[in-house]
Design a protein around this nucleic acid. Structure first.
Lengths: 164, 164
DNA sequence: GGTTTTCCCATGATATCCCATTACATCCCG
DNA sequence: CGGGATGTAATGGGATATCATGGGAAAACC
């Protein structure tokens, strides 16, 4: 299960969005009628998406990271302490997929993204993201330079190298 | 079964609250006519909710964690020792759901939350919570900052940005 | 007997279902 | 190999169901 590619999808006047076939095919075969959208925890204007099992798996890893195995009962009871997994759960919504592969984008997400006529769906491997098209374009430009620099910096002491 | 999303629900003049469809769908299919509300054990003004089976499962885990496997018989007999699960049971009430998905919020919980015209229902994964809207807003702001800091602290040697 | 709870009906907004259309890719058959 | 046939993806829209809410009336409670 790995979300790849990027695609621009239109929003019709009912607020519906077509889930790209490439992403739909990555959802678990036994749970393709719904998935999860949630606000980015630290990047305003971006909405993340994943399968239900993928989202739950992320929360499990998160809880395991924060507390030890014994912490589960503490998190279940302690309402005062900050709970990252709980925070993400509150910011998430289960979205039903219509039989034809579309879903209606809840207003809260549409506002967060700042959608007008279209959204960019972009694969990030373990998850995918919804972007405002213009903002996505800008981000991509910026990332291109960073990526080139990153690759250049990978092998500082390379004598040979070169490619065919 | 995972409670997600957050939603503001009005209280009508009869004290009734609509259980959001997103939460109702998470209740066990064989037990959707009732659920459990209980006071937060350590955060005044917050009321927790869960399915009956979910609440019972939490009590079981709590007893298993606190006392050993032999603890159940001890708890059944020892009225002198402090019993956390028993304490939670006393603070809990089974709430009936009307056929249309509403329930009447008992006065004790309404007072604890400090409701006026509305309540925020927020998903925490394994359970959900009822909040005073203003207090929830404040908590959310505070948690947002903590979440951003938490994500930042995950990878000590992180050069680039990115989000979770 | 008066208050509270439960059941039922009403309503506006939204979401869902179903059918139609266009574009593009693949398939089939000679 | 070509050209029609078929399939799927993305989009549009009308009809219907569901959600959240309000309120009246019966039923239960003290």
């Amino acid at each position: 299960m790995a979300f790849r590619s990027e695609i621009l999808i239109k929003l019709d006047k009912k607020g519906r969005v077509q889930m790209p076939a490439a992403f739909r095919d990555e959802l678990p075969v036994d749970d393709r009628n719904a998935f999860v959208l949630y606000h980015s925890p630290n990047l305003p204007g971006v909405v993340n998406g994943n399968s239900r099992s993928g989202f739950d798996a992320m929360l499990d890893r998160l809880r395991a990271e924060v507390l030890g195995p014994k912490g589960s009962i503490k998190v279940a009871l302690d309402d005062e302490a900050f709970d990252p997994a709980g925070y993400l759960s509150a910011s998430a919504r289960t979205i039903a997929l219509e039989p034809d592969g579309r879903f209606s984008l809840p207003g809260e997400f549409a506002e967060a993204i700042g959608v007008a006529d279209g959204v960019v769906l972009t694969g990030k491997g373990e998850k995918f993201q919804l972007w405002n098209p213009a903002r996505w374009q800008a981000r991509k430009e910026a990332d291109r330079a960073k990526m080139a620099a990153f690759v250049r910096g990978l092998a500082p002491e390379n004598s040979g190298g070169g490619d065919a």
